[in-house]
Design a protein around this nucleic acid. Structure first.
Lengths: 243, 243
DNA sequence: GCCATTCTGTGCGATAGCGCACAGAGCGCA
DNA sequence: TGCGCTCTGTGCGCTATCGCACAGAATGGC
């Protein structure tokens, strides 16, 4: 069995570029290791690079004056971190932090903007992806308002799992709590319930999902909406042959 | 004193277009009255028009299976309703409803897309505006998670007020509650407190703001963040002389 | 000017989630 | 192998918000 080396095509957006566009960017894509907790940008800080995750997951979240925080969306190999670079704002009020360690390819801001302005496939993909991101934000917002911690945990686990090759997350309950913006004890309780039901299994810093369907049955509608929109918006993507 | 007739320049985005771009669109802009409660589009419905509000306010909100709902962002004369038309998705999972009666100019979807694809000022404005919209969504999400009903009410009143020429909202508590996704009684209580403090005054279906600064002092940081980002992203806009 | 309708005020018990405190367990490192 | 740190489990009182029920007030239409 072949262990795949790092490859830009592990990122869906890059993989969907036509050869010509891809080759213009390829030489400038820089593979970077993403350690957990690394902050890609702070609020109102001029971004220097966009990141195309391959094996890592990045959390877009907002930290309040009080120190409390909440995730508004996650980005994995389906997307890009740094949409404000091509949307025109260059900065955002939220920050981006690595939630699951792995790798990403980064691209200098000027080059991204340049290629975006050619109004080719990359532009089309990035705009569609941004809309999918807005759907995620919408659902996070609604979910925060109306759903229980347990439902939100299920949603979050499923979304995270969809971005990973394994069924195991390296993640403490404390960290999950800060993503969802709830108490750590709330996660202990909710995770305990899910474990008792046999849907997950966890130990110190590791969460394994045993039954996706169990989680799907326990979560709210929000997960399905996000998933569906993500598929719809990025489904007509043609992948290059990457032989 | 002159009563201003309806005019596309009352919408900031339209007012910021250079003459050439504006004139290409002007003939196709259709003034439409917007009655309160009118649904501009339902979830997953193909949008036919984009709307540029002049005197109305439109609420983007999500209605859940249970019937519960929550606003994720509002759009007034600073923006456009229907960003998914140029972002590429054409539909969204949320709906758009008129929250304050007034007028808007609408533009056929094909024409909007056409002008957007010219990659001129309109494109730049729309993308920046969309980023501001994302900031609104982010703050709504965080606010839902961490702030009290009273703080959220203050935020919502201020944001709404900023889009109106008067200091009076035509709005029942029931309606405000459905925007914030809370109980009507919660609004009664919060509004009662604000009235007792002398910041607002209300009667059946009308809310007058007496002291902006009072509300600003009672609201959370979310209001200022949204306001600041909106200004930043749309501040370098040059308005045409509209003589 | 009256009536029906809609909106607002209030009270009540129920409950989800919070904040804090502390105990115990697991893991990594020496 | 053992120590110490970090993570997880649990208990307890507190608060904000919910859900429901109903009364009273305001308004618009006739």
């Amino acid at each position: 069995m072949l262990i795949l080396a790092n490859n830009p095509n592990q990122n869906h957006l890059l993989a969907a570029l036509p050869t010509e566009e891809f080759e213009r960017l390829a030489a400038h894509l820089e593979l970077v290791p993403m350690q957990i907790g690394k902050m890609l940008y702070e609020p109102n800080e001029q971004l220097q690079h966009a990141y195309f995750p391959t094996t890592c997951i990045v959390s877009l979240h907002y930290v309040m004056e009080s120190g409390a925080s909440a995730e508004t969306a996650g980005v994995g190999n389906e997307g890009i971190v740094g949409v404000s670079l091509f949307m025109g704002g260059n900065t955002t009020s939220s920050s981006a932090v690595v939630q699951t360690a792995g790798h990403a390819y980064r691209l200098e801001r000027r080059l991204l903007k340049q290629e975006f302005d050619r109004a080719g496939t990359l532009q089309r993909l990035l705009l569609r992806y941004t809309q999918a991101l807005m759907t995620q934000m919408t659902q996070t917002s609604v979910c925060n308002r109306h759903h229980s911690v347990e439902q939100q945990l299920c949603r979050w686990l499923l979304l995270t799992l969809d971005r990973l090759p394994t069924n195991e997350l390296i993640m403490t309950q404390e960290l999950v709590a800060s993503m969802l913006g709830v108490r750590r004890e709330g996660i202990t309780e909710a995770a305990g319930n899910l474990q008792r039901e046999g849907y997950i299994n966890y130990r110190r810093g590791h969460i394994s999902v045993l039954s996706r369907s169990g989680l799907e049955a326990h979560t709210c509608e929000c997960y399905a909406i996000v998933k569906k929109e993500m598929n719809r918006l990025l489904s007509d993507v043609q992948y290059r042959q990457n032989s």
